[in-house]
């Protein structure tokens, strides 16, 4: 069933609203996994990359509602298919949830983080549009998505801190993953402040939106693969 998504998602290039079928199927797959394993599928690259693709698709659908087929659709679809391929290639974690993850704080922390990541992803695509096509209208939308993503990411960090305090007695642990999470947060804080400085608006902030998502990807995938941290489950 998962592989049908590879056919359904590109249909958005034919007509963007056809992606709703892919979205409904993807939602169905997430719900069926949740029922099968008795938990929201949020562990490992298979689950989380699938989750990220789903939310990117939702945001893409909302953002592209009144747009035709253009570079935005091509880039967004390419990103979704790439992440979906990563999800399909990753092993499924079908075991029970480790006891330390059995808390609402973990679920809120992860779900909000991935919605924020998805917003940052679409914002990066809009940044490319601003730079390549000099599309002025894309920059304010990029700002809105990053602002919303920043707020959700901040809330995710706060919920993560509450969870860590209950689990390990410390709301902050000095590990590379925490440092990189802070780098992501600082980077988007930088974006929001830089946008107010004369000379940094326009192309520089569009670039910052793109670089931000590269940092997000490294924090999410790279740090887990290359560095030891408290986020290994």
């Amino acid at each position: 069933m998962y592989y049908i998504l590879f056919i359904l998602y590109p249909l958005a290039l034919y007509r963007s609203r056809l992606i709703i079928a892919a979205l409904v199927l993807h939602a169905g797959l997430i719900i069926s996994s949740a029922i099968t394993y008795g938990r929201i599928p949020l562990i490992g690259l298979h689950d989380t990359l699938g989750f990220l693709t789903f939310f990117i698709c939702v945001i893409f659908l909302i953002t592209s509602w009144s747009r035709g087929r253009d570079l935005f659709s091509y880039l967004s679809l390419a990103l979704m298919l790439l992440l979906l391929a990563g999800s399909a290639a990753s092993p499924v974690m079908d075991g029970p949830l480790p006891p330390v993850l059995k808390t609402i704080w973990f679920e809120l922390h992860v779900i909000l983080s991935f919605i924020a990541y998805a917003l940052f992803a679409v914002a990066a695509v809009l940044g490319i549009l601003h730079l390549v096509q000099q599309e002025e209208a894309s920059e304010p939308i990029q700002y809105r998505l990053i602002l919303l993503g920043y707020v959700l990411f901040s809330v995710a960090i706060i919920f993560g801190g509450i969870w860590a305090h209950l689990a390990w007695g410390a709301y902050w642990l000095w590990t590379p993953k925490e440092l990189w999470t802070t780098i992501v947060w600082l980077w988007y804080s930088l974006y929001l402040h830089a946008r107010l400085v004369r000379g940094w608006t326009g192309k520089p902030v569009a670039w910052m939106g793109i670089i931000g998502f590269v940092i997000v990807l490294f924090t999410y995938v790279g740090v887990g693969l290359l560095m030891k941290s408290s986020h290994e489950f």
Partner: peptide, 16 residues
């Protein structure tokens, strides 16, 4: 903020 990002970046490599 940029400097802080740079220091944390270096720190994430120094820690392991």
């Amino acid at each position: 903020l940029l400097a802080l990002i740079g220091f944390f970046f270096i720190g994430s490599y120094m820690m392991p």
